[in-house]
Measured scan of single mutants.
Amino acid sequence: CHSECLGNCSQPDDPTKCVACRNFYLDGRCVETCPPPYYHFQDWRCVNFSFCQDLHHKCKNSRRQGCHQYVIHNNKCIPECPSGYTMNSSNLLCTPCLGPCPKVCHLLEGEKTIDSVTSAQELRGCTVINGSLIINIRGGNNLAAELEANLGLIEEISGYLKIRRSYALVSLSFFRKLRLIRGETLEIGNYSFYALDNQNLRQLWDWSKHNLTITQGKLFFHYNPKLCLSEIHKMEEVSGTKGRQERNDIALKTNGDQASCENELLKFSYIRTSFDKILLRWEPYWPPDFRDLLGFMLFYKEAPYQNVTEFDGQDACGSNSWTVVDIDPPLRSNDPKSQNHPGWLMRGLKPWTQYAIFVKTLVTFSDERRTYGAKSDIIYVQTDATNPSVPLDPISVSNSSSQIILKWKPPSDPNGNITHYLVFWERQAEDSELFELDYCLKGLKLPSRTWSPPFESEDSQKHNQSEYEDSAGECCSCPKTDSQILKELEESSFRKTFEDYLHNVVFVPRKT
């Protein structure tokens, strides 16, 4: 048989008469490798580009789960590009990614509803959504962080984005990388972005840091009482949809009607710091009717980097990364020049730590249904340095008659930039024990000054392991946590139920 035959053949030295091919099969003959313009397919066939392209389009058009959109890589027609490569849609070739590779997620039936953290986790790592997304989240724990972890990498949506009755959302900033909504599939009414009845939605994105392009379709905003109209108009300008909307697409009466839409800028007039305090004062603000001013709200939190936005980490279910302080308005003076500047002394802060701070007014709604208010920009203030805590785990070892090696770990709280350490030492008198000992005694162990690591005695271990207080009263049991108490109650309830079950099964009433 021919060298490319495997198993047997019907005619000697003829690659077209093989029972099976050793390498690849091409047009009725066995070959060692697939010549151009053919590609290896499933490690035994040679196919042309049209064959591989037909497989790709067949799966793409069917949208069946589990099928493969075949691509070409290293002269092979394979189910998908290997790690580190992405497909070129024009020629199906796998090309190296520039940075992290995109991950295209194809949605069944063309859309997916995100109504819980669990459903959001199914899209973790996706960068391109081939379909439409509907966000409908009523509640949950730590929602802002969970949504950002699972949806934060999405850069492109081919269909539309719909935010509907998501009472738990305060902001859409968890879509931190969303840059493009194509609108290839539109919501009824030709809408590519749809926001309806979101009672706590206050911000779409921080438009000073976020760009969003909507290729096709219109915007729809109705019944978002805490979303200011200025935020919607800003989205029109940034996304390129200005002029597409009709009169009733953006409701003037049901958007922002319960919001404090600040239209003035508060400026800080005085800032002073110490290692654990920050004193702030800002310019006074009074609405047209000074009785509408209820006070100020001061927001602050630790910020290692200057990239904080107002609604980071917030949701309507209680999660809030900001510390909020309510401040009463100052006494009002008739003389504008003698107006008191409101302020606040922030206490209990960490030394040498940068804080993000902003302040906003708290006002009631005027009778004319106009909203007044003022808010400052987010500023960054760093507390002063102070003395560091003591170095940890000092170790001293003498390696000769004239040297001592000293080692330690950095302090747990540096409280500033540590530039150097101060080492103090003092000579001590020799131990009298060394002169009084009889060095001729056998088995004498000389006193040693070398360091030995501390260890816990058996008594201390027994005390720590004991669940009861000892007789001397030195140790006591740790208080039980809520989960331990709940577990004990469940076990007790189970024992009672099981005992009742045994009584009912074992003891049967005697027939009379």
Rank of each mutant, 00 (worst) to 15 (best):
F296Y: 00
N334R: 12
K267Y: 15
P342K: 10
E237D: 11
Q339D: 05
N130G: 15
E187N: 04
Q339L: 11
L298Q: 00
S158E: 05
I232T: 10
N150K: 10
I327G: 03
S166I: 04
L279Y: 15
S333Q: 11
K277M: 04
K409D: 03
S171W: 09
R291S: 01
E148Q: 11
T241I: 06
C317G: 03
S398T: 15
D257A: 02
V381P: 06
S192K: 00
L349R: 10
L331I: 08
I134R: 08
I135P: 00
N340A: 14
I357P: 01
Y372L: 04
L219E: 07
A385R: 09
G110S: 11
N211D: 10
V325T: 14
F221V: 10
K209W: 08
L151G: 00
R179P: 00
A120T: 06
K337R: 06
E184S: 10
F275A: 03
L345S: 11
D292Y: 05
D335H: 05
I114K: 00
D289T: 01
I188K: 04
S166G: 13
D328K: 13
T254D: 14
S173R: 08
Y380A: 05
C228M: 08
T323H: 13
A259R: 04
K407W: 09
M235R: 00
L252T: 07
A168Y: 11
K209E: 08
D367F: 13
F268C: 11
R176S: 09
G183L: 02
F174P: 12
N142Y: 06
L362N: 00
Q203A: 14
S396L: 02
G256P: 05
I181A: 00
C228S: 03
F174Q: 02
L180C: 10
F175D: 00
H210L: 09
P351G: 05
N340E: 14
D367S: 08
N255V: 04
A120C: 14
A316M: 09
V325G: 09
D249K: 04
K301C: 01
T371K: 03
S173W: 12
L392A: 03
L229F: 03
K242P: 10
E231F: 10
D292V: 02
K267L: 10
G313P: 05
P329V: 07
D335G: 03
F174E: 01
L345D: 14
D393S: 15
L219S: 13
R179D: 15
A195Y: 00
H341L: 11
E111S: 10
L293M: 05
I232M: 10
I232V: 05
S321G: 09
Q354S: 08
E231R: 09
G243R: 08
R272F: 13
A145W: 08
G217T: 00
I114G: 00
P287T: 10
